[in-house]
Amino acid sequence: MISRQKSIEILEAQSAQHDLLDKPLSQWRLTLRRFRGRRSGMVGLGIVVFLILMAIFAPVIAPYPPNEVLIGKEDVGPREKPCIHILGCDENKPQHIMGTDGNVRDEFSRIIYGARISLTLGFFTVTIALLVGGFFGAIAGYVGGWFDNIVMRIMDVILGFPSLLLAIAIVAVLGPGLQNALIAIAIVAIPAYARVMRAQVLAIKESDFVQASVALGSSSRQLLLRRVIPNALTPLVVLATLGVATAILEAAGLSFLGLGAQPPNPEWGSMLAQERNNLFTSPLLVFFPGFAIMLTVLGFNLMGDGLRDALDPALNR
């Protein structure tokens, strides 16, 4: 039999670990704790933070402005191989870590600045899709009836298209360009958010604390904005993180087809498309932008997976 003294000691030891006795853990702190325990999620977070820093400090890190043509300024030609001084490249030659591209610009600087475009694009498309999809999904779920029916059938039609094909068609209507690609990708992404939001709202609407709020006489607006939506957000956060990855991938695809970012924008997909025909002579100029895309997408995917695991109630034992 454990003495009283002993059991207090055990509890204290536990509370030191979990600080359960001091203050109750909020949902977010619990999530954060679980997230930290997942290696792949942390790797993803690391990659994303790295890329964000790279984007913010691009002017400091990049040795050249992204669009500066070096003809006549330096002794370099188009598509020159990488020259790194500490790896034994001739000190008299200018250093270009990733070489130069077809227009004699520093590839490394362009890759760095590319992070700005891709991250902004991923962030904005997801925000638009989240707001629009979340809005319609929430109302559809909350109001129900014919509104629900119409909204969800429209979403079904959008989902009936392969997403990249629909995005191509929308960009064709709006005209090629980074901004229009962003809108197209956002539109294509809307149904996913609407569906998840609707399902969440439907479930939460029936829960006891919402019913209690109804009984206390809250207005519909108050209910939806203060009770239902905040509690429905969790899976949307996961979806949004993964959505950034998809958005970046699709934007790169559109740019590759010439429908997204236009030259001389240092967008990775369009940089890759420009050097595509020189694949067999200078493969590195195709490799670097693609690798940058992959790394970014990988970062958001890992982070999203980690978040999902951390937020999944099924693992909440």
Binding site: S40, F291, V297
Partner: peptide, 26 residues
């Protein structure tokens, strides 16, 4: 396996295609 799968989902199709073309043709 899961690391490979994670990298797999993150690769742009066109980039992988071009890299494969370079690897197997050159």
């Amino acid at each position: 396996t899961m690391a490979i799968a994670n990298i797999g989902v993150s690769m742009p199709v066109f980039w992988l295609g071009l890299m494969l073309a370079y690897l197997f043709a050159i």
